[in-house]
Design a protein around this nucleic acid. Structure first.
Length: 565
RNA sequence: GCGCCAGUAGCUCAGGUGGAUAGAGCAACUGCCUUCUAAGCAGUAGGUCAGGGGUUCGAAUCCCUUCUGGCGUACCA
Protein backbone atom coordinates (compact mmCIF):
# COMPACT_ATOMS: atom_id res chain seq x y z
CA UNK A 1 0.00 0.00 0.00
CA UNK A 2 3.01 2.25 -0.21
CA UNK A 3 3.49 5.10 -2.58
CA UNK A 4 7.16 5.87 -2.08
CA UNK A 5 7.23 8.57 -4.73
CA UNK A 6 4.67 10.57 -2.77
CA UNK A 7 6.17 9.67 0.59
CA UNK A 8 9.55 10.98 -0.43
CA UNK A 9 7.96 14.09 -1.85
CA UNK A 10 6.04 14.79 1.35
CA UNK A 11 9.07 14.14 3.48
CA UNK A 12 10.94 16.94 1.71
CA UNK A 13 8.30 19.38 2.80
CA UNK A 14 8.72 18.17 6.36
CA UNK A 15 12.51 18.35 6.27
CA UNK A 16 12.44 21.86 4.88
CA UNK A 17 9.94 23.06 7.41
CA UNK A 18 12.16 21.74 10.20
CA UNK A 19 15.14 23.49 8.67
CA UNK A 20 13.17 26.70 8.34
CA UNK A 21 12.16 26.63 11.99
CA UNK A 22 15.74 26.04 12.98
CA UNK A 23 16.81 29.00 10.84
CA UNK A 24 14.19 31.21 12.46
CA UNK A 25 15.31 30.16 15.93
CA UNK A 26 18.88 30.88 14.98
CA UNK A 27 17.87 34.30 13.72
CA UNK A 28 19.01 33.54 10.17
CA UNK A 29 15.67 34.39 8.54
CA UNK A 30 12.72 36.49 9.67
CA UNK A 31 9.68 34.55 10.88
CA UNK A 32 7.38 35.21 7.96
CA UNK A 33 5.87 31.76 7.81
CA UNK A 34 7.15 28.64 6.10
CA UNK A 35 7.03 29.33 2.36
CA UNK A 36 4.53 27.25 0.38
CA UNK A 37 6.77 25.63 -2.17
CA UNK A 38 6.28 22.76 -4.54
CA UNK A 39 8.28 19.60 -4.79
CA UNK A 40 8.51 17.96 -8.15
CA UNK A 41 10.43 15.44 -10.13
CA UNK A 42 12.52 17.27 -12.71
CA UNK A 43 12.65 16.09 -16.30
CA UNK A 44 16.40 15.84 -16.16
CA UNK A 45 17.37 14.06 -12.96
CA UNK A 46 21.11 14.42 -13.41
CA UNK A 47 21.05 17.25 -10.86
CA UNK A 48 18.80 15.49 -8.39
CA UNK A 49 15.78 13.25 -8.02
CA UNK A 50 13.48 15.86 -6.54
CA UNK A 51 13.49 19.64 -6.89
CA UNK A 52 11.94 22.01 -4.36
CA UNK A 53 11.24 25.64 -5.14
CA UNK A 54 10.56 26.84 -1.58
CA UNK A 55 13.47 29.27 -1.64
CA UNK A 56 12.07 30.98 -4.72
CA UNK A 57 8.51 30.91 -3.44
CA UNK A 58 9.56 32.54 -0.17
CA UNK A 59 11.72 35.30 -1.63
CA UNK A 60 9.07 37.97 -1.45
CA UNK A 61 7.84 37.26 2.07
CA UNK A 62 11.30 36.82 3.56
CA UNK A 63 12.74 39.77 1.63
CA UNK A 64 15.81 37.76 0.76
CA UNK A 65 17.21 36.58 -2.58
CA UNK A 66 16.15 33.00 -3.45
CA UNK A 67 19.66 31.64 -3.47
CA UNK A 68 20.37 33.19 -0.10
CA UNK A 69 17.32 31.49 1.38
CA UNK A 70 18.36 28.23 -0.23
CA UNK A 71 21.81 28.41 1.37
CA UNK A 72 20.34 29.08 4.81
CA UNK A 73 17.85 26.21 4.49
CA UNK A 74 20.54 23.81 3.39
CA UNK A 75 22.79 24.79 6.30
CA UNK A 76 19.95 23.93 8.70
CA UNK A 77 18.87 20.75 6.96
CA UNK A 78 19.29 17.40 8.70
CA UNK A 79 19.21 14.46 6.28
CA UNK A 80 20.26 11.73 8.74
CA UNK A 81 18.13 8.62 8.36
CA UNK A 82 15.96 10.33 5.73
CA UNK A 83 15.17 9.15 2.21
CA UNK A 84 17.86 11.51 0.91
CA UNK A 85 21.61 11.45 0.89
CA UNK A 86 22.36 14.95 -0.37
CA UNK A 87 20.93 18.28 -1.41
CA UNK A 88 22.30 20.87 -3.81
CA UNK A 89 21.38 24.40 -4.75
CA UNK A 90 21.00 25.04 -8.44
CA UNK A 91 19.86 27.63 -10.94
CA UNK A 92 17.77 30.47 -9.54
CA UNK A 93 17.41 28.70 -6.20
CA UNK A 94 16.13 25.18 -6.72
CA UNK A 95 16.90 22.72 -3.95
CA UNK A 96 17.85 19.45 -5.57
CA UNK A 97 17.52 16.34 -3.44
CA UNK A 98 19.16 13.03 -4.19
CA UNK A 99 17.53 9.84 -2.99
CA UNK A 100 19.43 7.65 -0.55
CA UNK A 101 20.07 3.94 -0.45
CA UNK A 102 17.47 3.62 2.28
CA UNK A 103 14.78 4.68 -0.18
CA UNK A 104 15.92 2.35 -2.96
CA UNK A 105 16.03 -0.59 -0.59
CA UNK A 106 12.53 0.15 0.64
CA UNK A 107 11.15 0.12 -2.92
CA UNK A 108 12.49 -3.37 -3.55
CA UNK A 109 11.42 -4.53 -0.13
CA UNK A 110 7.85 -3.32 -0.70
CA UNK A 111 7.55 -5.04 -4.07
CA UNK A 112 8.93 -8.28 -2.66
CA UNK A 113 6.58 -8.31 0.30
CA UNK A 114 3.45 -6.97 -1.40
CA UNK A 115 3.71 -9.12 -4.52
CA UNK A 116 0.75 -8.85 -6.83
CA UNK A 117 -0.95 -6.31 -4.59
CA UNK A 118 1.93 -3.90 -5.08
CA UNK A 119 0.57 -0.76 -6.71
CA UNK A 120 -2.71 -0.76 -4.84
CA UNK A 121 -3.78 2.13 -2.70
CA UNK A 122 -6.85 3.08 -0.68
CA UNK A 123 -7.23 6.40 -2.46
CA UNK A 124 -10.82 5.61 -3.45
CA UNK A 125 -11.93 4.80 0.11
CA UNK A 126 -14.17 2.01 -1.12
CA UNK A 127 -16.44 4.34 -3.05
CA UNK A 128 -18.94 2.39 -5.13
CA UNK A 129 -18.44 3.26 -8.78
CA UNK A 130 -19.96 1.94 -11.96
CA UNK A 131 -18.16 2.09 -15.26
CA UNK A 132 -20.58 1.69 -18.12
CA UNK A 133 -18.87 1.07 -21.41
CA UNK A 134 -19.14 -0.41 -24.91
CA UNK A 135 -22.97 -0.60 -24.72
CA UNK A 136 -23.02 -1.13 -28.46
CA UNK A 137 -26.36 -1.44 -30.18
CA UNK A 138 -27.18 -5.14 -30.52
CA UNK A 139 -28.30 -4.51 -34.07
CA UNK A 140 -24.97 -5.49 -35.59
CA UNK A 141 -21.35 -6.43 -34.92
CA UNK A 142 -19.03 -4.28 -32.84
CA UNK A 143 -16.65 -1.96 -34.62
CA UNK A 144 -13.22 -0.51 -33.99
CA UNK A 145 -14.91 2.31 -32.09
CA UNK A 146 -16.07 -0.33 -29.63
CA UNK A 147 -12.53 -1.68 -29.61
CA UNK A 148 -11.39 1.63 -28.23
CA UNK A 149 -14.25 2.09 -25.80
CA UNK A 150 -13.86 -1.49 -24.63
CA UNK A 151 -10.26 -1.35 -23.63
CA UNK A 152 -10.63 2.15 -22.25
CA UNK A 153 -13.55 1.26 -20.02
CA UNK A 154 -12.08 -2.04 -18.93
CA UNK A 155 -8.66 -0.59 -18.13
CA UNK A 156 -10.22 2.37 -16.38
CA UNK A 157 -12.20 -0.02 -14.22
CA UNK A 158 -9.01 -1.96 -13.40
CA UNK A 159 -7.15 1.17 -12.53
CA UNK A 160 -9.97 2.33 -10.25
CA UNK A 161 -10.07 -1.07 -8.55
CA UNK A 162 -6.41 -0.82 -7.70
CA UNK A 163 -6.82 2.72 -6.52
CA UNK A 164 -9.25 1.50 -3.88
CA UNK A 165 -12.67 1.88 -5.47
CA UNK A 166 -15.37 -0.80 -5.55
CA UNK A 167 -15.94 -1.13 -9.26
CA UNK A 168 -18.81 -2.49 -11.30
CA UNK A 169 -18.54 -3.03 -15.06
CA UNK A 170 -21.78 -2.67 -16.97
CA UNK A 171 -22.97 -3.07 -20.54
CA UNK A 172 -26.22 -1.33 -21.39
CA UNK A 173 -28.15 -3.25 -24.01
CA UNK A 174 -30.39 -1.08 -26.21
CA UNK A 175 -32.92 -3.82 -26.83
CA UNK A 176 -35.84 -1.47 -27.35
CA UNK A 177 -36.75 1.55 -29.40
CA UNK A 178 -36.51 2.75 -32.95
CA UNK A 179 -33.20 1.16 -33.84
CA UNK A 180 -34.53 -2.22 -32.80
CA UNK A 181 -37.63 -1.74 -34.96
CA UNK A 182 -35.39 -0.87 -37.84
CA UNK A 183 -33.34 -3.94 -37.14
CA UNK A 184 -36.45 -6.08 -37.39
CA UNK A 185 -37.53 -4.41 -40.61
CA UNK A 186 -34.08 -4.89 -42.11
CA UNK A 187 -34.17 -8.61 -41.40
CA UNK A 188 -37.69 -8.75 -42.73
CA UNK A 189 -36.64 -7.14 -46.01
CA UNK A 190 -33.75 -9.57 -46.44
CA UNK A 191 -35.99 -12.49 -45.58
CA UNK A 192 -38.60 -11.51 -48.13
CA UNK A 193 -35.88 -10.87 -50.69
CA UNK A 194 -34.67 -14.44 -50.18
CA UNK A 195 -38.08 -15.69 -51.18
CA UNK A 196 -39.22 -13.15 -53.74
CA UNK A 197 -35.89 -11.98 -55.13
CA UNK A 198 -33.71 -8.91 -54.43
CA UNK A 199 -35.59 -6.54 -56.69
CA UNK A 200 -39.08 -7.48 -55.60
CA UNK A 201 -38.71 -6.12 -52.09
CA UNK A 202 -37.73 -2.60 -51.16
CA UNK A 203 -35.13 -2.20 -48.43
CA UNK A 204 -35.94 0.26 -45.60
CA UNK A 205 -34.38 3.64 -46.21
CA UNK A 206 -32.29 3.79 -43.05
CA UNK A 207 -32.01 0.04 -42.67
CA UNK A 208 -28.95 -1.92 -41.69
CA UNK A 209 -27.13 -2.92 -44.85
CA UNK A 210 -24.56 -5.24 -43.32
CA UNK A 211 -24.07 -8.82 -44.39
CA UNK A 212 -24.84 -9.92 -40.85
CA UNK A 213 -28.48 -9.02 -41.50
CA UNK A 214 -28.57 -11.23 -44.60
CA UNK A 215 -27.08 -14.00 -42.52
CA UNK A 216 -29.78 -13.68 -39.87
CA UNK A 217 -32.48 -13.78 -42.55
CA UNK A 218 -30.88 -16.86 -44.05
CA UNK A 219 -30.74 -18.59 -40.66
CA UNK A 220 -34.41 -17.87 -40.09
CA UNK A 221 -35.28 -19.15 -43.53
CA UNK A 222 -33.19 -22.29 -43.08
CA UNK A 223 -34.92 -23.00 -39.82
CA UNK A 224 -38.52 -22.07 -40.60
CA UNK A 225 -38.76 -21.77 -44.37
CA UNK A 226 -41.40 -19.38 -45.66
CA UNK A 227 -43.75 -19.70 -42.70
CA UNK A 228 -43.56 -15.92 -42.02
CA UNK A 229 -44.54 -14.99 -45.55
CA UNK A 230 -48.22 -14.41 -44.90
CA UNK A 231 -47.84 -13.16 -41.36
CA UNK A 232 -48.84 -9.68 -40.31
CA UNK A 233 -45.92 -7.26 -40.74
CA UNK A 234 -45.61 -6.17 -37.13
CA UNK A 235 -45.90 -9.67 -35.81
CA UNK A 236 -43.30 -10.89 -38.31
CA UNK A 237 -40.83 -8.18 -37.34
CA UNK A 238 -41.33 -9.00 -33.68
CA UNK A 239 -40.52 -12.63 -34.36
CA UNK A 240 -37.39 -11.66 -36.27
CA UNK A 241 -36.23 -9.35 -33.48
CA UNK A 242 -36.84 -12.10 -30.95
CA UNK A 243 -34.53 -14.28 -32.95
CA UNK A 244 -31.93 -11.71 -33.99
CA UNK A 245 -31.40 -9.78 -30.80
CA UNK A 246 -30.45 -12.66 -28.48
CA UNK A 247 -28.30 -14.05 -31.26
CA UNK A 248 -26.40 -10.78 -31.60
CA UNK A 249 -26.07 -10.32 -27.87
CA UNK A 250 -24.56 -13.77 -27.47
CA UNK A 251 -22.15 -12.98 -30.27
CA UNK A 252 -21.10 -9.75 -28.58
CA UNK A 253 -20.56 -11.60 -25.32
CA UNK A 254 -18.38 -14.09 -27.12
CA UNK A 255 -16.33 -11.45 -28.88
CA UNK A 256 -15.91 -9.34 -25.77
CA UNK A 257 -14.81 -12.38 -23.86
CA UNK A 258 -12.20 -12.92 -26.50
CA UNK A 259 -11.25 -9.29 -26.03
CA UNK A 260 -10.80 -10.19 -22.33
CA UNK A 261 -13.65 -8.10 -21.07
CA UNK A 262 -16.14 -9.50 -18.66
CA UNK A 263 -19.05 -7.44 -17.40
CA UNK A 264 -20.69 -7.69 -14.02
CA UNK A 265 -23.99 -7.05 -15.70
CA UNK A 266 -25.62 -6.79 -19.10
CA UNK A 267 -28.42 -4.42 -18.30
CA UNK A 268 -31.44 -4.59 -20.59
CA UNK A 269 -33.11 -1.36 -21.60
CA UNK A 270 -36.36 -3.29 -22.03
CA UNK A 271 -36.42 -4.03 -18.31
CA UNK A 272 -36.85 -0.32 -17.62
CA UNK A 273 -39.91 -0.26 -19.86
CA UNK A 274 -41.55 -3.45 -18.64
CA UNK A 275 -41.17 -2.55 -14.97
CA UNK A 276 -42.77 0.84 -15.54
CA UNK A 277 -39.64 2.57 -14.31
CA UNK A 278 -39.43 4.90 -17.29
CA UNK A 279 -43.02 5.94 -16.85
CA UNK A 280 -42.48 6.47 -13.14
CA UNK A 281 -39.39 8.61 -13.72
CA UNK A 282 -41.11 10.77 -16.31
CA UNK A 283 -44.06 11.17 -13.93
CA UNK A 284 -41.62 12.44 -11.34
CA UNK A 285 -40.43 15.13 -13.72
CA UNK A 286 -43.98 15.97 -14.72
CA UNK A 287 -45.06 16.31 -11.10
CA UNK A 288 -42.05 18.45 -10.42
CA UNK A 289 -43.29 20.84 -13.06
CA UNK A 290 -40.31 20.45 -15.35
CA UNK A 291 -42.31 19.48 -18.40
CA UNK A 292 -44.76 20.91 -20.90
CA UNK A 293 -46.72 19.65 -23.89
CA UNK A 294 -46.12 20.87 -27.40
CA UNK A 295 -47.22 19.34 -30.72
CA UNK A 296 -48.66 16.36 -28.82
CA UNK A 297 -45.24 15.55 -27.38
CA UNK A 298 -44.02 15.85 -23.78
CA UNK A 299 -41.01 18.13 -23.40
CA UNK A 300 -38.48 18.53 -20.62
CA UNK A 301 -37.63 22.12 -19.70
CA UNK A 302 -33.96 21.40 -19.98
CA UNK A 303 -32.97 25.03 -20.44
CA UNK A 304 -33.97 25.54 -16.82
CA UNK A 305 -31.04 23.36 -15.85
CA UNK A 306 -28.63 25.30 -18.02
CA UNK A 307 -28.85 23.26 -21.20
CA UNK A 308 -29.03 24.95 -24.57
CA UNK A 309 -32.29 23.33 -25.61
CA UNK A 310 -35.30 21.45 -24.35
CA UNK A 311 -35.75 17.75 -24.98
CA UNK A 312 -38.62 15.51 -25.96
CA UNK A 313 -39.40 12.87 -23.33
CA UNK A 314 -42.45 11.27 -24.91
CA UNK A 315 -43.12 11.40 -28.60
CA UNK A 316 -46.43 12.29 -30.19
CA UNK A 317 -46.95 8.58 -30.87
CA UNK A 318 -46.77 7.84 -27.14
CA UNK A 319 -43.34 6.19 -27.06
CA UNK A 320 -40.64 7.39 -24.73
CA UNK A 321 -37.48 8.80 -26.28
CA UNK A 322 -33.99 7.52 -25.58
CA UNK A 323 -33.60 10.71 -23.56
CA UNK A 324 -36.33 9.77 -21.10
CA UNK A 325 -35.04 6.22 -20.90
CA UNK A 326 -31.53 7.44 -20.22
CA UNK A 327 -32.71 9.55 -17.33
CA UNK A 328 -34.56 6.58 -15.91
CA UNK A 329 -31.57 4.32 -16.42
CA UNK A 330 -29.24 6.66 -14.57
CA UNK A 331 -31.72 7.22 -11.81
CA UNK A 332 -31.79 3.46 -11.47
CA UNK A 333 -27.98 3.31 -11.22
CA UNK A 334 -27.82 5.82 -8.41
CA UNK A 335 -31.06 5.40 -6.51
CA UNK A 336 -32.02 1.76 -6.93
CA UNK A 337 -28.53 0.33 -7.00
CA UNK A 338 -26.72 2.80 -4.76
CA UNK A 339 -23.70 3.76 -6.78
CA UNK A 340 -21.86 6.83 -5.48
CA UNK A 341 -20.35 7.55 -8.82
CA UNK A 342 -21.09 6.54 -12.38
CA UNK A 343 -18.67 6.89 -15.25
CA UNK A 344 -20.07 6.54 -18.75
CA UNK A 345 -17.58 5.88 -21.50
CA UNK A 346 -19.01 7.46 -24.62
CA UNK A 347 -17.79 8.30 -28.08
CA UNK A 348 -17.33 11.94 -29.07
CA UNK A 349 -20.44 11.70 -31.23
CA UNK A 350 -22.38 11.74 -27.96
CA UNK A 351 -20.65 14.63 -26.27
CA UNK A 352 -23.50 17.05 -27.00
CA UNK A 353 -25.86 14.65 -25.32
CA UNK A 354 -23.49 14.25 -22.38
CA UNK A 355 -23.54 17.99 -21.70
CA UNK A 356 -27.31 18.35 -21.96
CA UNK A 357 -27.89 15.12 -20.12
CA UNK A 358 -25.80 16.07 -17.09
CA UNK A 359 -27.82 19.27 -16.94
CA UNK A 360 -31.04 17.25 -16.78
CA UNK A 361 -29.68 15.05 -14.04
CA UNK A 362 -29.51 18.02 -11.69
CA UNK A 363 -33.31 18.13 -11.54
CA UNK A 364 -33.98 18.09 -7.78
CA UNK A 365 -36.84 15.58 -8.03
CA UNK A 366 -34.36 12.94 -9.16
CA UNK A 367 -32.58 13.15 -5.82
CA UNK A 368 -29.05 12.90 -7.14
CA UNK A 369 -27.57 15.88 -5.32
CA UNK A 370 -24.77 13.93 -3.66
CA UNK A 371 -24.03 11.68 -6.61
CA UNK A 372 -21.33 12.01 -9.22
CA UNK A 373 -22.03 11.45 -12.88
CA UNK A 374 -18.91 11.64 -15.01
CA UNK A 375 -18.31 11.03 -18.66
CA UNK A 376 -15.23 9.73 -20.32
CA UNK A 377 -15.62 11.08 -23.82
CA UNK A 378 -13.29 9.44 -26.24
CA UNK A 379 -12.58 10.95 -29.60
CA UNK A 380 -13.36 9.05 -32.77
CA UNK A 381 -11.18 6.47 -34.39
CA UNK A 382 -10.21 7.48 -37.88
CA UNK A 383 -9.65 4.55 -40.12
CA UNK A 384 -7.09 5.02 -42.86
CA UNK A 385 -5.51 2.76 -45.38
CA UNK A 386 -2.16 4.24 -46.23
CA UNK A 387 -3.03 7.86 -46.90
CA UNK A 388 -6.65 7.23 -47.80
CA UNK A 389 -9.41 7.76 -45.23
CA UNK A 390 -11.83 4.86 -44.97
CA UNK A 391 -15.36 5.94 -44.20
CA UNK A 392 -17.07 3.72 -41.70
CA UNK A 393 -20.76 3.38 -41.12
CA UNK A 394 -22.69 0.68 -39.40
CA UNK A 395 -25.72 1.52 -41.50
CA UNK A 396 -24.00 0.91 -44.81
CA UNK A 397 -22.43 -2.19 -43.33
CA UNK A 398 -18.90 -1.41 -44.35
CA UNK A 399 -17.40 -1.27 -40.88
CA UNK A 400 -14.35 -3.22 -39.85
CA UNK A 401 -15.49 -5.36 -36.96
CA UNK A 402 -13.76 -5.85 -33.65
CA UNK A 403 -13.59 -9.56 -34.27
CA UNK A 404 -11.93 -9.13 -37.66
CA UNK A 405 -9.42 -6.85 -36.05
CA UNK A 406 -8.56 -9.40 -33.38
CA UNK A 407 -8.03 -11.96 -36.15
CA UNK A 408 -5.67 -9.63 -37.94
CA UNK A 409 -3.49 -8.16 -35.25
CA UNK A 410 -4.18 -10.26 -32.19
CA UNK A 411 -5.80 -9.39 -28.89
CA UNK A 412 -2.66 -8.14 -27.16
CA UNK A 413 -1.73 -5.66 -29.87
CA UNK A 414 -5.33 -4.60 -30.18
CA UNK A 415 -5.74 -3.83 -26.50
CA UNK A 416 -2.42 -2.09 -26.27
CA UNK A 417 -2.97 -0.02 -29.38
CA UNK A 418 -6.47 1.16 -28.53
CA UNK A 419 -5.54 2.13 -25.01
CA UNK A 420 -4.53 5.57 -26.22
CA UNK A 421 -5.23 8.90 -24.58
CA UNK A 422 -9.02 9.31 -24.76
CA UNK A 423 -9.25 12.93 -25.79
CA UNK A 424 -7.19 12.75 -28.93
CA UNK A 425 -8.33 11.40 -32.23
CA UNK A 426 -6.91 8.01 -32.94
CA UNK A 427 -5.69 7.31 -36.37
CA UNK A 428 -5.77 3.66 -37.20
CA UNK A 429 -3.83 2.67 -40.27
CA UNK A 430 -5.01 -0.67 -41.62
CA UNK A 431 -1.90 -1.20 -43.70
CA UNK A 432 0.22 -0.63 -40.65
CA UNK A 433 -1.94 -2.77 -38.42
CA UNK A 434 -1.58 -5.81 -40.62
CA UNK A 435 2.20 -5.69 -40.46
CA UNK A 436 2.22 -4.64 -36.87
CA UNK A 437 4.71 -7.14 -35.64
CA UNK A 438 7.94 -5.96 -34.11
CA UNK A 439 6.97 -2.38 -34.74
CA UNK A 440 4.28 -2.51 -32.11
CA UNK A 441 5.44 -1.35 -28.68
CA UNK A 442 3.48 -4.15 -27.06
CA UNK A 443 6.17 -6.59 -28.19
CA UNK A 444 8.85 -4.37 -26.76
CA UNK A 445 7.26 -4.65 -23.35
CA UNK A 446 6.43 -8.33 -23.63
CA UNK A 447 9.97 -9.02 -24.74
CA UNK A 448 11.33 -7.41 -21.59
CA UNK A 449 9.10 -9.68 -19.54
CA UNK A 450 10.09 -12.80 -21.44
CA UNK A 451 13.73 -11.84 -21.15
CA UNK A 452 13.51 -11.64 -17.38
CA UNK A 453 11.65 -14.92 -17.08
CA UNK A 454 14.16 -16.83 -19.13
CA UNK A 455 17.04 -15.21 -17.29
CA UNK A 456 15.61 -16.11 -13.91
CA UNK A 457 14.95 -19.71 -14.88
CA UNK A 458 18.41 -20.05 -16.39
CA UNK A 459 19.98 -18.73 -13.21
CA UNK A 460 17.87 -21.05 -11.10
CA UNK A 461 19.08 -24.01 -13.15
CA UNK A 462 22.63 -22.99 -12.38
CA UNK A 463 21.79 -23.10 -8.69
CA UNK A 464 21.14 -19.40 -8.21
CA UNK A 465 17.48 -18.95 -7.49
CA UNK A 466 16.05 -15.61 -6.42
CA UNK A 467 17.12 -15.13 -2.83
CA UNK A 468 14.18 -15.04 -0.47
CA UNK A 469 13.96 -13.98 3.11
CA UNK A 470 16.38 -11.62 4.75
CA UNK A 471 16.64 -7.90 4.25
CA UNK A 472 16.61 -6.58 0.72
CA UNK A 473 19.42 -4.14 0.17
CA UNK A 474 19.93 -1.87 -2.78
CA UNK A 475 23.36 -0.84 -1.50
CA UNK A 476 25.14 -2.62 -4.34
CA UNK A 477 22.70 -1.44 -6.99
CA UNK A 478 24.25 1.95 -7.41
CA UNK A 479 24.74 2.42 -11.12
CA UNK A 480 22.68 4.94 -13.02
CA UNK A 481 20.74 2.20 -14.79
CA UNK A 482 19.95 0.24 -11.66
CA UNK A 483 18.73 3.28 -9.81
CA UNK A 484 16.76 4.49 -12.80
CA UNK A 485 15.01 1.15 -12.97
CA UNK A 486 14.17 1.13 -9.27
CA UNK A 487 12.76 4.64 -9.49
CA UNK A 488 10.48 3.58 -12.29
CA UNK A 489 9.31 0.60 -10.22
CA UNK A 490 8.51 2.99 -7.38
CA UNK A 491 6.41 5.10 -9.71
CA UNK A 492 3.83 2.37 -10.25
CA UNK A 493 1.47 3.22 -7.41
CA UNK A 494 1.57 6.89 -8.29
CA UNK A 495 0.88 6.14 -11.97
CA UNK A 496 -2.20 4.12 -11.04
CA UNK A 497 -3.40 6.92 -8.78
CA UNK A 498 -3.04 9.47 -11.57
CA UNK A 499 -4.64 7.22 -14.16
CA UNK A 500 -7.63 6.79 -11.84
CA UNK A 501 -7.81 10.47 -10.99
CA UNK A 502 -7.66 11.62 -14.62
CA UNK A 503 -9.68 8.72 -16.07
CA UNK A 504 -6.73 8.07 -18.35
CA UNK A 505 -5.67 4.41 -18.30
CA UNK A 506 -3.35 5.01 -21.24
CA UNK A 507 -0.87 6.29 -18.68
CA UNK A 508 -0.24 2.62 -17.87
CA UNK A 509 0.84 1.99 -21.46
CA UNK A 510 3.40 4.75 -21.30
CA UNK A 511 4.47 3.71 -17.84
CA UNK A 512 5.10 0.09 -18.72
CA UNK A 513 6.86 1.00 -21.97
CA UNK A 514 9.25 3.21 -20.03
CA UNK A 515 9.72 0.48 -17.45
CA UNK A 516 10.63 -1.97 -20.20
CA UNK A 517 13.05 0.54 -21.70
CA UNK A 518 14.78 0.99 -18.37
CA UNK A 519 15.00 -2.74 -17.90
CA UNK A 520 16.55 -3.25 -21.35
CA UNK A 521 19.13 -0.58 -20.56
CA UNK A 522 19.93 -2.17 -17.23
CA UNK A 523 20.11 -5.60 -18.81
CA UNK A 524 22.54 -4.44 -21.46
CA UNK A 525 24.88 -2.66 -19.11
CA UNK A 526 24.74 -4.84 -16.00
CA UNK A 527 25.70 -8.49 -16.11
CA UNK A 528 24.13 -10.89 -13.69
CA UNK A 529 25.70 -14.24 -14.36
CA UNK A 530 29.30 -13.17 -13.88
CA UNK A 531 28.66 -10.75 -11.02
CA UNK A 532 29.95 -11.35 -7.50
CA UNK A 533 27.45 -13.42 -5.47
CA UNK A 534 26.14 -10.50 -3.40
CA UNK A 535 25.74 -8.25 -6.42
CA UNK A 536 24.27 -11.11 -8.46
CA UNK A 537 21.66 -11.75 -5.82
CA UNK A 538 20.76 -8.09 -5.55
CA UNK A 539 20.37 -7.88 -9.31
CA UNK A 540 18.28 -11.04 -9.36
CA UNK A 541 15.94 -9.42 -6.88
CA UNK A 542 15.77 -6.34 -9.07
CA UNK A 543 14.89 -8.54 -12.06
CA UNK A 544 12.26 -10.33 -10.06
CA UNK A 545 10.69 -7.06 -8.93
CA UNK A 546 10.67 -5.78 -12.49
CA UNK A 547 9.03 -8.94 -13.74
CA UNK A 548 6.29 -8.64 -11.13
CA UNK A 549 5.55 -5.02 -11.94
CA UNK A 550 5.53 -5.51 -15.71
CA UNK A 551 3.14 -8.43 -15.37
CA UNK A 552 0.99 -6.40 -13.01
CA UNK A 553 0.87 -3.39 -15.31
CA UNK A 554 0.07 -5.51 -18.36
CA UNK A 555 -2.68 -7.18 -16.39
CA UNK A 556 -4.31 -3.80 -15.81
CA UNK A 557 -4.55 -3.14 -19.51
CA UNK A 558 -5.47 -6.73 -20.31
CA UNK A 559 -2.33 -7.75 -22.16
CA UNK A 560 -0.61 -11.08 -21.53
CA UNK A 561 2.88 -11.29 -20.09
CA UNK A 562 4.57 -14.19 -21.91
CA UNK A 563 7.40 -16.11 -20.29
CA UNK A 564 8.92 -16.98 -23.63
CA UNK A 565 9.06 -15.28 -26.99
C1' G B 1 -23.84 30.49 -36.11
C1' C B 2 -23.17 28.14 -31.24
C1' G B 3 -20.81 24.06 -28.34
C1' C B 4 -17.01 19.96 -27.31
C1' C B 5 -12.05 17.83 -28.64
C1' A B 6 -7.61 18.52 -31.04
C1' G B 7 -3.17 21.20 -33.82
C1' U B 8 4.32 19.71 -30.78
C1' A B 9 10.29 16.44 -35.48
C1' G B 10 8.92 13.64 -42.31
C1' C B 11 4.87 10.03 -39.74
C1' U B 12 2.29 8.35 -34.92
C1' C B 13 2.30 10.57 -30.36
C1' A B 14 4.46 11.98 -24.78
C1' G B 15 5.11 16.42 -22.06
C1' G B 16 3.10 14.87 -14.11
C1' U B 17 -2.59 21.12 -13.18
C1' G B 18 3.48 27.32 -14.75
C1' G B 19 9.81 25.41 -14.07
C1' A B 20 16.08 24.33 -15.67
C1' U B 21 18.77 22.70 -22.62
C1' A B 22 10.77 20.63 -25.49
C1' G B 23 11.09 14.27 -25.39
C1' A B 24 10.07 8.96 -27.18
C1' G B 25 8.76 5.35 -31.09
C1' C B 26 8.72 4.65 -36.45
C1' A B 27 11.27 6.22 -40.93
C1' A B 28 16.95 7.88 -42.33
C1' C B 29 22.19 7.35 -41.19
C1' U B 30 26.54 4.98 -37.83
C1' G B 31 28.20 1.37 -34.48
C1' C B 32 27.41 -3.27 -30.94
C1' C B 33 25.95 -10.67 -30.84
C1' U B 34 32.23 -17.20 -29.83
C1' U B 35 29.58 -14.06 -23.08
C1' C B 36 22.25 -14.21 -19.12
C1' U B 37 16.82 -13.80 -25.50
C1' A B 38 19.79 -8.44 -31.08
C1' A B 39 11.63 -8.62 -30.86
C1' G B 40 17.63 -5.55 -27.72
C1' C B 41 21.43 -1.51 -26.70
C1' A B 42 24.51 2.94 -27.85
C1' G B 43 25.00 7.15 -31.13
C1' U B 44 24.00 11.00 -35.38
C1' A B 45 20.44 13.97 -37.73
C1' G B 46 15.68 16.11 -37.52
C1' G B 47 11.52 21.93 -34.11
C1' U B 48 8.83 29.32 -35.66
C1' C B 49 5.34 23.73 -29.85
C1' A B 50 -0.61 26.25 -36.03
C1' G B 51 -0.35 32.20 -36.17
C1' G B 52 -0.78 36.78 -33.20
C1' G B 53 -1.40 39.31 -28.58
C1' G B 54 -1.53 39.10 -23.05
C1' U B 55 -0.61 37.46 -17.67
C1' U B 56 5.06 37.01 -14.63
C1' C B 57 11.00 35.99 -12.23
C1' G B 58 9.63 32.00 -16.06
C1' A B 59 4.51 29.72 -20.87
C1' A B 60 4.08 23.93 -25.27
C1' U B 61 1.24 24.39 -20.48
C1' C B 62 -2.99 29.79 -18.01
C1' C B 63 -6.27 34.09 -20.58
C1' C B 64 -7.93 36.56 -25.30
C1' U B 65 -8.06 36.20 -30.61
C1' U B 66 -7.45 34.27 -35.68
C1' C B 67 -6.76 29.96 -38.75
C1' U B 68 -7.16 24.48 -39.74
C1' G B 69 -9.29 19.49 -38.81
C1' G B 70 -12.90 16.01 -36.30
C1' C B 71 -17.57 15.65 -33.84
C1' G B 72 -22.22 17.56 -32.10
C1' U B 73 -26.50 20.92 -32.31
C1' A B 74 -33.35 14.72 -34.40
C1' C B 75 -40.31 13.35 -31.67
C1' C B 76 -32.30 8.20 -33.82
C1' A B 77 -29.38 5.89 -29.72
Amino acid sequence: MANLIEEAKLSIDGLLEKAYKKAVTGGLVPDAGFPQGKVEIPKDTSNGDYAANHAMAGAKALKLPPRGIAEILVSCLDLDDSFFESVQIAGPGFLNFRLSEKWYSKVLHDIQTEGTSYGRSDEGLGEKVMVEFVSANPTGPMTIGNARGGVLGDALASVLERAGYRVWREFYVNDAGNQVDLFGKSIEARYLQLIKGEDAVEFPENGYHGDDIRLLAQMIFDRDGDKYLDMDGDERCRAFVEFGLPYNIELMKKHLERYRISFDEWFLESSLHSSGYVEETVKLLEDGGYTYEKDDALWLRNTEFGADKDEVLRRANGFYTYYAVDIAYHRNKFIERGFDRVIDVWGADHHGHAIRFSASMTAPVLGLQNKKLDFLIMQMVRLVRGSEVVKVSKRTGKALTLNDLMDEIGVDACRFFFNAKPDTHLEFDLDLAIRQDSENPVYYVQYAHARICSLISAMAEEGHPIPNGGAVSAALLNTEHERGLIKQLAMFTEEIRLAARDYDPSRINRYVTELAARFHRFYTSCRIKEAEPALRDARLILCDCTEKVIANALDIIGVTAPEKM
